[in-house]
Amino acid sequence: MFNIPKLPLAQWVDAALAWLTAAISPLTRAFAGFVRLGIDGIVSGLGFLPPIVLILLIGALAWWIANRRVAIFSVVGLLFIWNLGLWQPTLSTIALVLVSTLISVMIGAPLGILAGLSERFHRVVTPILDFMQTMPAFVYLIPAIPFFGLGPVAASFATVIFSIPPAIRLTSLGIRQIDKEMIEASDAFGSTRMQKLTKVQLPLALPTIMAGINQTIMLSLSMVVIAAMIGAGGLGGEVWRAIQRLRAGQGVEAGLAVVIIAMILDRITQNIAVSKKTIPS
């Protein structure tokens, strides 16, 4: 027992990663292309508008989707961030969150639907999701670097991996928790599988799916900050720089901006979910 050498797990992982990097390079390149395009598009698109216009637009959006309180909070919070001189990093953080969330949902929702419909797939995917969620967030930063190098693309990759589980889980849950009689009713009238999915299962699962997307956004934001360590930039970058230079004041400013962005995103997306649920009544 004492003489058995340490298992070379680290070496194995390194070797596997090296092989993977080479093997999936077309995929990684496509991913990188998509992320860069998305981030550049959003940053330049949003950056094109004067901050005050953008702030008022976001306020209007918050009012439309949520309510007046959220709208006022959004405008005041964003003005505060602008005042702190953190407008540019905030934009790039929002861009990174939006792109990562989009990718997470694009991958996560279909997987979630599959897990919702197939008991077998559900059983395979659940332990993987458990594993992904218990893994410390930093760990995802490491494989991101060999695939994409330092920078926002690597950050987005790590963010997607970290934030995808709730999108899958809650989509699956949303489909699973539909009342059995609803499914029977849909079957009894002769629905095809596709009709059942689009006309009954997805609409009924929508509130839960939206709750999953909300969580995915929140996790994305937290990961985007951590991913500053591998060059995500944005508000996380500001925090990271403040830590390295031991500048508590700057750290608090940037941290506060993150909190404000988190609250705005949360309230707005939460209300998308709720308003969908209450439309009928």
Partner: peptide
């Protein structure tokens, strides 16, 4: 089966099973 369900049967359920959306 789908065909016969569409043509021959109409089903009514105990707890109604109406689609809330």
């Amino acid at each position: 089966l789908r065909e016969i369900r569409r043509k021959k049967f109409g089903m009514v359920f105990q707890s109604f099973a109406l689609f809330p959306h």
